[in-house]
């Protein structure tokens, strides 16, 4: 029996197909990108090898690349410090509501997550449109006309609109994870708190929060890496504009490759992008591990 568990052929049969697909579509392209990144290929005709020149430019000179990273950082910040507290708050109160209403709210909060990003992004472009959008019309209807804005076009507001839409779309995930975390807290613990006369706030600080810690860590690290990887909402809503105010890395490299004919350079960005993602994940994991 141990023989079959060590059988090389069986192992190969089990593991190879998956590894092959994974290597072919995930690892191989990154190696290819690393190579293309060393060329000056315009996506047309022949190319020259330019060594690490592209990589140097990406890391040290490219201001748009830096803006894109900062935007991702801003998104991560808002997700962690605004979306998550709200999600946690609602996870707690839906848990308290109980019964049919609880399942109803839980179901509804997740709806935006099951709808395609293309639909929601295009929908928000219309909602936020300054001329006929729902938001401006709503503000007008409740006599807050002065708040009307060019939500996606204003240089200082566009980024926040984009961040808001991404948070709206992802709210259900954050909520659900906290919700299941709260469901995992043993009832006796909360009961014990109640008997000790703890009010809701004390109960939250003393019992719920510490118990949720592992879930918070998972949720936050997902949020940070997901912030880096945003593309579709930006591609569909602003394409990085006005100027580069709402640019994100993935959209930037796509634009460079297919609009600006800088195929080689875009590939260099792709590789740096992968490295940034890896480093971020490792750093986040380590910070959390040391805190655990």
């Amino acid at each position: 029996m141990d023989k079959i568990r060590r059988n090389k052929f069986v192992i190969f049969f089990l593991v190879f197909p998956g590894l092959l697909v994974f290597t072919f579509a995930v690892l191989y392209p990154i190696f290819m990108s690393a190579f293309y990144g060393m060329t000056d290929w315009k996506g047309i005709g022949e190319f020259n090898i330019v060594g690490f020149e592209n990589y140097r430019k990406v890391i040290f000179e490219d201001k748009v690349f830096r803006t894109s990273l900062l935007n991702a950082a801003a998104l991560a910040f808002f997700t962690v410090f605004i979306q998550h507290p709200i999600a946690m708050f609602f996870a707690i109160i839906t848990d308290k509501i109980g019964g049919k209403l609880e399942s109803f709210f839980r179901a509804v909060f997740f709806i935006p997550c099951v709808i395609s990003i293309v639909v929601t992004s295009k929908m928000w472009v219309n909602v936020l449109n300054a001329n006929y959008g729902l938001l401006n019309k709503f503000l007008e209807a409740i006599n807050l006309k002065f708040l009307k804005q060019d939500w996606l076009g204003h240089k200082d507001i566009a980024l926040f609109s984009v961040i808001f839409v991404i948070m709206w779309q992802g709210f259900g995930y954050a909520y659900l994870i906290y919700y299941s975390g709260i469901k995992g807290i043993p009832e006796e613990l909360l009961e014990a708190g109640r008997i000790d006369g703890a009010n809701s706030w004390q109960q939250f600080i003393k019992i719920t929060l510490p118990m949720l810690k592992p879930v918070i860590l998972v949720n936050v690290s997902i949020a940070i890496t997901a912030s880096l990887k945003q593309m579709e909402p930006i591609y569909l809503m602003t394409n990085g504009g006005p100027g580069t105010r709402t640019q994100f890395v993935a959209n930037y490299l796509y634009m460079l490759a297919f609009n600006a004919q800088k195929y080689g350079y875009a590939n260099a960005i792709a590789v740096v992008f992968v490295i940034v993602c890896l480093i971020t994940t490792v750093v986040v994991q380590n910070i959390f591990k040391s805190k655990d």
């Binding site: 392209p29 990154i30 990108s33 293309y36 890496t225 990887k229 195929y263 875009a266 792709a270």
Partner: peptide, 16 residues
């Protein structure tokens, strides 16, 4: 693979 953004593979997968 968790950490690798799909968008980084778009360009070279397209060629492949």
């Amino acid at each position: 693979g968790f950490m690798i953004p799909i968008h980084a593979t778009l360009l070279s997968n397209f060629i492949t």
